[in-house]
Design a protein around this nucleic acid. Structure first.
Lengths: 211, 211
DNA sequence: TAGATTGTTAATCGATTAACAATC
DNA sequence: TAGATTGTTAATCGATTAACAATC
């Protein structure tokens, strides 16, 4: 569904930051990490960390904490980041190019294998080793690969038409980096990423501090 | 303060999307726009839109809605986006370069006048007409310009040292695009932008839908 | 005027936090 | 063992939603 009730959205948002901490602990060969320590690191309440981690199904050990390897696996499994998923990039502009080069996405199972752009001069080139195709090639590429995920980084004015195009081709999950609220059928999920929202928070924090 | 209580964070997050809608209405010469219409556009509840807009101080007119020009001004003023603020970009990699080229930030009053990078081969070049300096030039450039805002896009491993450097130079607001939770003194505000969080939500929505 | 829309006050809902028994 | 930490159940807090009088 376009807007689906998913349990404990704020908790899910925090999971990646826990994963980051746990991975660091794992790398220096720590066998266990406690919710208390994770909380300290992120300046959260320990009880919140424990509650959040519980949704992944991980079981900790009193006095020791959570086994780092198991916890990493539990979070990755819960988020579906333990399987590699083909994904397309629609819009090979500044932001699209940056995201295409974001190595970390690989750790989340995202494999961007094709990019698409309306600009003719970009077609045939490649960004971070990912070939850029014309928009007309979307249908074929999506069907051939079975990709379900698209990262949408076209100019906001063209967001809806681009969305229509990729949904038609078979995309069912859109990571939307445009300002446009997309109209999509019920079987398509959309996550709207809004950089302006983050800056709005920073702006208000600045003003509040300065009176 | 590092973590400051700011009123109605979720409301503030939604303001930029309202602004986007209102700007569109304004462009096609609509004199008024109602909370009902904004809500429809964004698939929100009208009452939520009205409550959110109230924090900007805007006063609407029964039956007509909100005057578009006044509403744009009210939101921009509330967010402090009506004044131009000098800002620096720390880390001229993929993401940094993309953000430097993000024209929309200009509408939010952000004026990125200098970028800094640890890589010698980048120093002396420019990204989207913004000159790239070595990290050692931060102090001078920040003091000269009086910049308070920094966009942090260095690799996560170097986030804390870079933060220390810019805070030392006089930066008091950091838009943090790294995975690292920064340790900062009380007078510095930080907004952590986490792309992974957004993808976590999308991932779970996909899994929920598919059972 | 009639009725759509605002803004206020109250009710509901969900997330965070607190308390505490269980446990290794 | 003693005590740090987990996980559960209950209390609090804040955000969303509902109800409705005011108004142009």
């Amino acid at each position: 569904m376009a807007k689906q009730k998913i349990p404990a959205m704020p908790s899910i948002r925090r999971l990646p930051s826990y994963l980051y901490i746990v991975q660091q602990a794992h790398q220096i060969n720590q066998e266990y990490i406690s919710g208390t320590v994770i909380a300290q690191e992120l300046k959260l309440e320990p009880i919140q960390v424990r509650k959040d981690l519980a949704i992944t199904g991980i079981v900790g050990r009193p006095k020791k904490g959570y086994p780092t390897t198991e916890l990493m696996n539990a979070i990755n499994r819960f988020l579906g980041w333990d399987t590699i998923q083909p994904a397309i990039l629609v819009g090979a502009g500044n932001l699209g190019t940056a995201l295409a080069g974001y190595e970390e996405f690989r750790l989340h199972g995202i494999n961007i294998f094709a990019a698409f752009d309306a600009e003719k001069k970009k077609v045939g080139t490649s960004i971070h080793r990912i070939p850029v195709y014309p928009l007309s090639a979307i249908d074929k590429q999506v069907k051939k690969s079975g990709a379900k995920i698209a990262i949408l980084t076209v100019p906001s004015e063209h967001a809806q038409e681009a969305a229509n195009l990729i949904i038609e081709a078979g995309i069912t999950a859109i990571w939307n980096f445009t300002n446009h609220k997309l109209n999509v059928p019920d079987h398509v999920v959309v996550q709207k990423e809004d950089l302006s929202s983050g800056f709005a928070i920073l702006s208000v924090m600045m003003r509040n501090r300065d009176q």
